[in-house]
Amino acid sequence: MSDKVFSLNFSHVKWLLLFSYLAGLVIDSALNFSFALHFAPPITLLLLLFWSSQILNQTHLFTAFVLGLLNDASLNTPLGAHALLFLTVTFFMLRIRLRFRGYPMWQQSIIVAFYILFFQVAGWFIFHPTLAGNTVFYYWLEPIFAIALWPVVSNVMQSLTQRALFR
């Protein structure tokens, strides 16, 4: 039983993993199209960071690339731009994922906020977003939103993972 907890494999949670990415894409699109919230951290990226830190026998780089491409198609940005950003952030996570798993939640949230900050800074140079008025603040506040969102995403996914493993 402990093997399943400490060395989670793709095969153990493949449906949950695929469903979570699908749900993440739907939520990201809904935030854009239904609620016009353009400054929420990408849920798919947070999910990618979560799975990168949990499933250790994979690099998740191919997943990052595909999710980035789908984001590019959805947001009408140059193909490969989000893919590059997703790959870079995932690479950062891969470098520290063993230590990351051992950190308390608040420390994990701060690290994720730094990743999102990098995502925003690199996005600023690549996409040249047109910001006016309050949107400038919202754009740069996205890492702060990520701090609030990471514990929710992490706890929900951990709970679902445990249910998937021991049902």
């Binding site: 894409l25 739907v26 699109s29 809904a30 239904s34 789908l70 959805s74």
Partner: peptide, 13 residues
């Protein structure tokens, strides 16, 4: 590919 995802995303609206 993402068309069904976007359709699902517009259900709330």
């Amino acid at each position: 590919t993402i068309d069904p995802i976007e359709r699902a995303a517009t259900i709330p609206l």
